[in-house]
């Protein structure tokens, strides 16, 4: 026997360690669950971390109301399977209460509004640690994010004043009202996530697999036609075989044309991809440091 781990096993061991630290250091943690592949892998790792016990924390979904129906169905089945608790933070609720105002215009989305709902839900439920599936390879501001990321009592991230993180020592100490965001799969890449899904045979929403769908060409990607977007005069829906590389709101998540209808083919496709997965996300196209600006305010 060789006493070495493969890269996936080593990443898995690191993530499980981090998730167990969260359980040990915090009173009231949650997993932020979007229905995307990263939060699905995170949830899978949490199951492994506490087996044969159930996941000792609830899943929390910030629901913009602009979902793919497949995502919600997948979420509800997973919750039922695991016997876990689900907390829903509703952006529609925040709009109704007058906490935020809906964007208008052609590229309007509820992406930015999520931050308020997220912070409100964290506060209402006394959450002291919210685990997310963000990865450092996704975006340049995320490359500097810690595993244990401190948020002040306004939920804000201060990138210049982050706590140093050395070895396997994670400092989750905080004052009342503050909370942490924790990113157990920080060191995974998109490729690692797909390879792991394949290796562990983890169920994912059908949206990731190539399928036929009515779409329009907008912002350099195939945007799904739904009741939430307004079509311009020149925009004619077409039927295309597409799949999604990331899942966000149905209003801003563009798909790519693809024939990859199995996990193996997806892994091959990811290996050959020449664009980042967030290249099809309209939310990141709002300026050079769009992600850092949103994160400072408390975004995921």
């Amino acid at each position: 026997m060789r006493y070495t781990l493969t890269h996936l096993k080593e990443l898995e061991a690191e993530s499980i360690y981090v998730i167990r630290e969260v359980y040990a250091q915090f009173e009231n943690p949650v997993i932020l669950f979007s229905g995307g592949k990263d939060s699905i892998v995170l949830t899978h790792l949490a199951r492994k971390a506490f087996w044969p016990a159930k996941i000792p924390f609830p899943l929390m979904h910030v629901d913009t109301g602009h979902n793919f129906p497949e995502t919600i169905e997948f979420r509800d089945n997973l919750i039922k399977d695991m016997g876990a608790k689900l907390i829903i933070g509703s952006v529609q609720g925040s709009i109704d209460k007058g906490r935020v105002r809906e964007e208008t215009g052609k590229n309007a989305s509820r992406n930015a509004l999520q931050t308020t709902t997220l912070l409100d839900t964290i506060e209402e439920n006394n959450i002291d640690a919210a685990m997310g599936g963000a990865r450092r390879d996704e975006e340049k501001a995320r490359a500097k994010e810690r595993f244990f990321s401190h948020r002040d009592d306004f939920g804000q991230w201060d990138p210049k004043n982050q706590r140093p993180e050395l070895w396997n020592q994670f400092n989750g100490k905080k004052q009342m009202g503050e909370h942490f965001r924790v990113f157990p799969i920080s060191n995974w890449t998109e490729m690692d996530v797909w390879q792991y899904i394949l290796m562990e045979n983890i169920a994912i929403p059908s949206l990731y697999i190539a399928h036929e769908r009515e779409v329009i060409w907008r912002n350099n990607s195939w945007l799904p036609v739904s009741e939430y977007i307004k079509l311009e005069e020149h925009e004619k829906p077409e039927l295309k075989k597409i799949r999604f590389r990331t899942l966000g709101d149905i209003t801003i998540t563009g798909g790519v044309e693809s024939d990859a209808d199995t996990l193996e083919k997806i892994v091959e496709e990811v290996a050959a991809a020449r664009q980042t997965e967030r290249g099809n996300r309209a939310d990141d196209k709002r300026g050079e440091t769009a992600m850092e600006d949103r994160k400072k305010q408390g975004y995921f």
């Binding site: 890269h7 500097k144 050079e288």
Partner: peptide, 23 residues
Amino acid sequence: LTDGLKDEREQGITIDVAYRYFA
């Protein structure tokens, strides 16, 4: 590519540890 934070980009310096991945 590696200097991700606004201040780093403005000042042209690396301030923090940045993690990069390749395979």
